[in-house]
Amino acid sequence: MVNVKFFGIARLKFKEKEIQIEAGTVKELCQAIADRYSVPFKDVKQFLIYVNGVNIVDLKTFRTPLKDGDNLMFLSPSSGG
């Protein structure tokens, strides 16, 4: 199980701050989140995604492997002022 924290609009939309979920890669995780909250996969993919504090663009993007205990952040930016 990996730990996922939601930030910004992701948290406001899903109405949860933190969940634990099974996934072997970031792509699988995105699909699991899309299924859990009944949102399109492409919407989840748009979030900024961090694995243990590292942006997935600096890892293997959606092919980044995940292991038990990994900490992920999904951030969708605020736009209010």
Binding site: F7, G8, I9, R11, L12, P77, S78, S79, G80, G81
Partner: peptide
């Protein structure tokens, strides 16, 4: 850049 929604922002 600064932005805020409810209690979160960046």
């Amino acid at each position: 850049h600064g932005a805020i929604d409810e209690e979160q922002g960046q």
